[in-house]
Amino acid sequence: MYFRWMLLVSLPFLILCCGKGKAETTETAETVKTARGIPLERKQRFSGNYNKEFNDLQDAHLSAATALGISPMALRNDTLKLKDELVRLPDELELYKMYDLTHSIPFLVPSAAQLFVDITRNFRDSLYSKDLPLYRLYLTSILRTDEDLSILTKRNINASENSTHRYGTTFDISWKRFDPVMPDSIRQVPPERLKLVLAQVLFDLKNQQRCYVKHERKQACFHITAR
Rank of each mutant, 00 (worst) to 15 (best):
I15A: 09
Y50W: 08
E41I: 07
A23Y: 01
T145M: 10
G21Q: 08
K81T: 00
A159E: 08
C17A: 11
Q209I: 09
L93F: 02
L143Q: 10
I173S: 04
L86F: 11
H223Y: 10
A74V: 14
R166H: 10
K214G: 02
K43W: 01
E147A: 14
N207I: 06
L205Y: 10
I142H: 01
A60C: 04
S160Q: 15
I70E: 04
S160R: 14
A159I: 08
N122W: 12
D131F: 10
R177P: 01
E94V: 12
I105S: 03
N122G: 13
F171E: 01
E85T: 00
H215V: 02
L194K: 04
E161P: 03
N49T: 04
R155L: 06
R136K: 15
P12S: 13
F171G: 03
E94P: 04
L62V: 08
T164R: 08
V189F: 03
S141C: 14
P183E: 14
A159W: 05
L137E: 04
F116D: 05
L202M: 08
Y50G: 03
P39D: 15
G37R: 03
K20F: 02
Y99P: 02
N49M: 00
P190Y: 15
T34H: 03
L115K: 12
F54Y: 07
Y99M: 15
P90D: 14
D78H: 13
F178M: 10
G37S: 00
D146E: 13
K130P: 00
P191I: 06
F46E: 01
L75H: 07
K218L: 01
Q58D: 08
L132Q: 14
G21H: 09
I186V: 07
E161D: 14
Y50V: 07
F116M: 14
D172F: 04
L68W: 08
R144C: 00
Y128M: 09
V181I: 15
L62S: 13
R76Y: 04
R45F: 11
E85M: 04
M98P: 06
E92W: 10
L108K: 15
T225Q: 04
E92F: 10
L14Q: 13
E147V: 06
Q188A: 11
L14G: 05
E24Y: 13
T170I: 09
F54N: 12
A113N: 14
V32L: 11
Q114R: 15
T102I: 03
R193D: 11
Y96N: 03
K154E: 01
C211K: 10
G69V: 01
F171D: 01
K33S: 06
C18G: 12
K83A: 06
L93V: 07
T66Q: 06
N156L: 12
T26R: 09
S129V: 01
V32T: 13
T66W: 00
K214I: 01
G168N: 05
D91E: 13
N77W: 07
E53D: 08
I186L: 14
E147G: 07
G21P: 03
L93G: 00
C18F: 07
L134A: 04
M98I: 05
D204F: 01
L14C: 05
L137Q: 00
D184S: 10
I157N: 14
G19S: 08
K22E: 11
Q209S: 12
R4E: 07
G37I: 05
